[in-house]
């Protein structure tokens, strides 16, 4: 188990290094930080001093090593646009995005999995047909359109829910949460639906397809032949066997939700990392973009590690396969 985690982390290291290289390359190829920082009027001496101060006159590998070293300490430099430490900017924005992403993911899983099980079990029920038709909307409508439609209906016409922002936020020192106030929760509803709808329908369709597959297997027939109650057959024997592919997709999708909350955050003016990233792209704010890229890569790598560990927990064949590959138990 411990060796498994270590080997996974070692495999993740090259990925992170490559992403770091790409982030670092942005500094060299996207705009010139020195002229951005100096503004319009400067002397050659000022310029040379700044280049030396930033270490830009040193060899590539030295610069890259320093970049990685700083990044490991959470040090990403100053934002060009806001002249504040990037780490601090991201730390301020991350709770908003993560809260939104986890609400969206929870919605997708808690609604998508039961809907998938239901449509898999009762293929021909009218409700199944309704779910499937509805899921086509989720898959085919673009996120921004769903967001705008939701705002139109629930904010403009009905006036039930706010159309932008996080509402009242409680500051816990290292984390600001909207989950503790009524207005914060209300503000979360529309963006979560917008962000999670695609994942919800994807998970529903995946669970449905897997259920149909698993329900045809011999061990399900045998479970029925042993007279086990339907609840045990469907939610124990069948659902558990659909989990491996569902965990894979759900994990990747959660990464996607965090990384690509940009559109939803823009539509709802959500003060998260996505919005920060979009504004930074507009201003060619390289340090923020580089840090964001690294952070998202870290999120994906971490989620992949968790997904692997979940496989390990769910499927005993993977456990023993891993043991056998390393000389056996």
């Amino acid at each position: 188990m411990f060796a498994f985690i270590i080997s996974r982390i070692l495999q993740a290291l090259p990925v992170m290094l490559v992403v770091a290289l790409i982030s670092f390359a942005m500094f060299a190829y996207v705009g010139d930080p020195v002229s951005i920082m100096l503004g319009q009027d400067y002397t050659e001496a000022q310029r040379a001093a700044l280049v030396a101060e930033l270490g830009l006159d040193q060899p590539f590998f030295v610069q890259f090593a320093r970049f990685v070293g700083n990044a490991l300490q959470g040090e990403f430099g100053l934002s060009y646009r806001l002249s504040r430490p990037v780490a601090q900017l991201i730390a301020e924005r991350a709770p908003a995005t993560l809260e939104l992403a986890f609400c969206a993911a929870a919605l997708a899983l808690l609604v998508g999995v039961p809907m998938g099980v239901y449509t898999g079990l009762y293929r021909n029920a009218w409700l199944s047909r309704f779910f499937l038709t509805f899921s086509l909307i989720g898959v085919s409508l673009p996120t921004f359109l769903i967001g705008i439609l939701l705002i139109l209906v629930f904010s403009v016409w009905l006036g039930w829910l706010p159309s932008f922002g996080r509402g009242d936020v409680v500051d816990l020192g290292w984390w600001s949460t909207g989950l503790l106030t009524w207005s914060g929760i209300k503000a979360l509803i529309l963006p979560s639906i917008t962000l999670g709808l695609f994942q919800l329908t994807l998970i529903m369709r995946l669970v449905r397809a897997e259920m149909l597959e698993v329900l045809r297997t011999d061990y399900i027939k045998f479970a029925r032949a042993r007279g086990l109650p339907n609840r045990a057959v469907h939610f124990g024997h069948a659902l558990k066997n659909t989990l491996v592919p569902v965990i894979t997709i759900a994990g990747l999708q959660l990464g996607g939700i965090i990384a690509f909350a940009i559109v939803t955050e823009t539509v709802f003016q959500w003060p998260g990392m996505g919005l920060l990233f979009i504004q930074s792209v507009g201003a060619a704010d390289i340090p923020v973009m580089a840090a964001y890229l690294l952070l998202i890569a870290l999120v994906f790598v971490t989620i992949n590690l968790i997904v692997d560990l979940l496989y390990y927990a769910v499927d005993p064949r993977i456990r023993s396969g891993f043991g056998a590959a390393r000389g056996g138990h």
Binding site: T217, D218, Y219, F222, A223, H237, N241, D315, P316, R317
Partner: peptide, 10 residues
């Protein structure tokens, strides 16, 4: 087929 009759995860 005993290879497919038992649930692999139990």
């Amino acid at each position: 087929d005993p290879l497919t009759t038992l649930n692999p995860l139990y």
